[in-house]
Design a protein around this nucleic acid. Structure first.
Lengths: 338, 338
DNA sequence: CCGCTGAAGTTTTACGTATAACGTCCTTCG
DNA sequence: CGAAGGACGTTATACGTAAAACTTCAGCGG
């Protein structure tokens, strides 16, 4: 008597097809050329189909010692950007027969502080954003192959890195604004300790500092519209000559800058220019539409996953930063003549 | 000689602690009361710690016949809303020792059309949004425990359902606008075939239709700012008396409506009122801030996961819709007197 | 006619874990 | 004082799969 409620196993298929379990494994694994006759192979496939057989992945993973599953570590995930990264990474992974499990690092997740306990799956490798700093120490503990996203290339983790060319993006923003004639800048900076934000500040200072007579004031702000609004409003109300352009570390901060400007009665771009970074949906929802740097989040995820798969196969991951593109919209214009 | 590069197993721990593998399993599984002395237990834990032992989950899953992993099926994931659903679901799952693997249903993912092949993990259950319609047939094929999110309670899948009280949200919107004096409505509707959108249209028609002298025109639009702008602009330019309020199926559509109004020289809320549904970050980024219905995406994910866990444990999932809340902001006002 | 090769399978084993079933002692009580 | 039971383990087994090692047999060249 066959077991009732249990899912069919390869042995059940074997019995139905009148062959051994090994033959089933060979046929379904496409390793049967010269080992099993075509007729028998078809019989096995037919039996598997009618029984609705699905291989038990836990057993397969145990046997093979690998899982074809990788972990993607991101901060929070509540952002459009990392949703895009996930989408790109998952697409590439799927094309190679890999699955992706997610670990959104901070408060979002429950008591299981350990990414590897939380992601119940057994893993082959890890793709991690540098912004998920709190999870990195735990990750370093394991010996799993690791590829970092947007991390210091000389980082202490000694892992391969895939980067967006943020430096170039900031350079494009700086030259765009300088070219329009701006000289007094406010840098609305994300108050997050992460390499990807540090280079924004560094490159902006370098580019703008190269032009005599320019000034850059920096206002740190939490990455939220309301927090950015408060920080920008305070900075714009400070004594001294008012900046003519606000360079924001990302689009959400720029949305906050819009609100600050509106409260202070400043019109964009007539009285003050604003730039963002990301090109989220938000950028075209606000009025005027935001001049910003487009980051291709999905491509970023794809490249990251390709690099990780390369590492898993023992190949060297491709080098080279991912290009970004300045998108000029209505939020920037020449400064009003004083 | 111990094997070199391989990860330590429970047998390695046993050897190091001078006990049997079974004892290690008992101690680490916290099943040792009255079976192993406290001193021995501590010795085992110490050995596990120094070796950096981590149980092989594939082996455990095979042995136990369950994986403590569930699949979350959502459309695309590129939205803030489903990112929130994931976050809430993952939090509850983690608190119960479960992992969550994601299947974003449509084009995003590679050639593996089959959610269960794509999600490499072996699964215990499925939590699925009704919007991921294309994956549902595949899901129905398997016998896995299933809980639906925002689906027709009388649906043909015969699965438990967890719903946001969208009907009540639409009712609140309708009464808010009717109370302000609006009588001519434009319904900017998502052109997605899904139960959750169908009930929006149905409830709006019911509430507004109950008041004599009201009219509702419907304009279907793709869920994107630009698509919504085009649809709204066309509808507002149509002959006949202009609507005084636009009711949008979600916030993104509302952002499109804003752009249409701006193009036509209509001021919000003076010339026309607009409402959304979701309360995304977008809602407070645009000017004026959007009157919308707040959906608690994380709570939705939490409740959904709680229901699925209940089903997995053989308990009956809790009944009752999740309350939603109208948030009145600056985009609605009484209609201008004709 | 013998031995060899290749086709077509089968038998067996290992992956690492959890737990049922089975041994020892040592204490304790009728 | 004998037996019963607890305390403290160990041995053995099964989960389902993949693949290495083995068997059987037909055909064929020398």
């Amino acid at each position: 008597m066959a077991r009732a409620s249990t899912r069919p196993t390869s042995r059940d298929v074997a019995e139905a097809a009148g062959v051994s379990q090994a033959a089933v494994s060979l046929v379904l694994g496409e390793k049967w050329r010269g080992r099993v006759s075509a007729a028998t192979a078809e019989r096995v496939r037919e039996a598997a189909r009618t029984l609705g057989y699905r291989p038990n992945l836990a057993a397969r993973n145990l046997r093979l010692g690998r899982t074809r599953t990788v972990l993607l570590v991101v901060p929070a995930l509540t952002t459009e950007f990392f949703a895009g990264v996930y989408t790109g990474a998952a697409r590439v992974a799927a094309a190679h027969g890999f699955g992706v499990v997610l670990y959104p690092s901070p408060e979002g997740i429950g008591p299981a502080r350990d990414p590897f306990a939380s992601a119940q799956a057994a893993l082959d490798g890890v793709l991690a954003s540098s912004m998920a700093a709190d999870a990195l120490t735990a990750i370093r503990g394991d010996q799993l192959p690791l590829v970092m996203l947007d991390s210091d290339p000389d980082g202490s983790l000694g892992a391969a890195t895939v980067n967006l060319d943020i430096t170039d993006g900031v350079r494009q923003v700086a030259e765009h604004l300088l070219g329009l004639g701006h000289r007094r800048f406010l840098h609305l900076a994300a108050d997050v300790a992460s390499w990807t934000f540090e280079i924004r500040a560094r490159e902006l200072a370098a580019r703008v500092g190269a032009v005599p007579g320019t000034t850059v004031r920096t206002a740190p702000a939490p990455i939220s519209i309301e927090g950015a609004r408060a920080a920008a409003e305070a900075a714009l109300s400070a004594p001294g000559p008012r900046p003519t352009a606000i360079v924001c570390d990302d689009d959400k901060l720029a949305a906050g800058a819009y609100k600050a400007a509106r409260r202070l009665g400043l019109r964009i771009p007539d009285d003050i220019s604003v730039t963002g970074l990301d090109d989220l949906a938000l950028a075209t929802a606000i009025d005027p539409e935001l001049t910003t740097v487009r980051l291709d989040a999905e491509l970023f995820g794809e490249r990251g996953m390709q690099a990780l798969l390369a590492v898993l196969e023992g190949r060297a991951p491709a080098r080279g930063d991912i290009p970004v593109e300045l998108v000029v919209r209505g939020s920037t214009a020449p400064p009003a003549v004083a």
